[in-house]
Design a binder for these strands. Structure first.
Lengths: 242, 242
DNA sequence: CGTTCATTTGATCTAACTCAAAAGACGTGG
DNA sequence: CCACGTCTTTTGAGTTAGATCAAATGAACG
């Protein structure tokens, strides 16, 4: 077992060996040969919070895997109103296949590590290997499910339920390694109050007031504005409305 | 040219020959041989408005193509609040691949014609032919784009903008044959006021008031509660906020 | 032509927004 | 280490868009 694994690993590109996306991400659909080919054309980069990864209505020449951190996907109205339409956590795939122009903005909200590939290389590989396209369909279906869940949050939940739903979403997704925490968790909010407001379709003030309420009710504790301690996930779930 | 086409048509299953989804829908990704195989196991049906096609949290044994009419996809909260998270027009594909249980309700809102296939047959065919999976990825990506557009509508638009956006969406999608009307159109609303409210995250009363306003401002005319005449698509677009 | 259901209209009410100011976090340079 | 300025978050007071409650009108149908 150990031997076999080592032999296998020796075929895996150096760049990919320690990569988390190797298992959960789209790269999991590639065999070692394809991984070799792709890794030659790929590059890692680290970006700071606030870095714009894809501009709204901008041509995109590459796809990426999110290896760590959080990326927000935004859409704007002509008068400046904004809505965050998705959050990407590791090891999500970032990019819109088969379209030159993205109608989405993408921006790092925390320190983010990315592994990027040229659009052409991915699309060639997609034609050759159905497994990759299958994996991409899976992720897209999952994103569609998430988007529709969020539509319920946006359309039908109260401010209190929205904020609770948001905290739960973060608690469940912020750590790509350990899946679902049971009863108590802790994390740093990957978004500012302004971003949370744009994600929930609320104002900063309303978000703040609802967080204060959750704190007053002993459901959460907040330290230094960013660090959240969820005292009871169960009680948080009860406040989500569903 | 005519000759060739006729020869080709003779290979196409009778059931599919006059089918609109043959060109725009997922079936367009199948060759005649595959079409033959699938059509043997498929069946058409007509259903009335209000027919539940898929129950929330119900196991689904088949996929369908919408051939005519409109299907609403719904999600509910525990206390009865509802949100429509998508509308399917012809020739959309209906169903959630790779999942036994749908977390969505699906209900006809008009008279609907469906062509249904056993889940297993579609999934087998998907494994054999990458083209089908590719086509499905395309539709899923399009649905994801639509869902995200709608998130902006739900999260950031005013009641007036929401209703205008809804009318525009219907005007652009109700007729699968002729794509985008230019300046004036006419259609029957495929949804009741209650459904429109659930789609827009509003109440019936607010929807009604906004429709009345659009009528008062001369943007639309309404006959018999259901039939809408859009006097100026351009002026409707201006009211959508984006 | 009366019953039923969908829609409109009217009169309040309230959750969330807006505007304004205070409090807290954080970095910088003395 | 502390004083200062900047930026973010919280808190407060008043306003409003859309909800709620209630009633009238209109369409469809046996």
């Amino acid at each position: 077992m150990t031997t076999r694994k080592d032999i296998h690993n020796s075929d895996i590109p150096v760049l990919c060996q320690s990569c988390e996306a190797r298992h959960g991400g789209v790269c999991a659909a590639l065999d070692n040969h394809q991984l070799q080919a792709l890794s030659k054309a790929s590059w890692k980069r680290k970006v700071e919070p606030g870095t714009e990864l894809v501009g709204d209505a901008e041509a995109v020449g590459s796809y990426s895997n999110v290896l760590s951190g959080v990326v927000k996907l935004t859409k704007g109205l002509s008068d400046g109103r904004q809505q965050i339409v998705g959050l990407q956590f590791a090891p999500d795939f970032l990019g819109r296949p088969f379209k030159v122009e993205s109608r989405l903005g993408a921006e790092a909200t925390t320190d983010v590590t990315l592994c990027s590939f040229p659009k052409a290389a991915v699309e060639r590989m997609m034609k050759e290997s159905p497994g990759l396209e299958h994996r991409l369909l899976q992720q897209t279906l999952a994103e569609l499910d998430d988007a529709r869940d969020w539509m319920v949050t946006l359309g039908r939940k109260t401010a209190g339920e929205k904020v609770a739903s948001f905290l739960l979403l973060i608690a469940r997704n912020i750590d790509p390694a350990s899946p679902p925490p049971a009863e108590k968790t802790t994390f740093d909010l990957p978004l500012t109050r302004a971003d949370i407001a744009d994600f929930l379709g609320l104002t900063i003030e309303t978000v703040s007031r609802q967080l204060t309420k959750l704190r007053a009710d002993g459901v959460i504790t907040i330290e230094n504005n960013r660090h959240v301690i969820v005292e009871s996930l169960e009680r948080l779930e009860l406040r989500c409305g569903d």
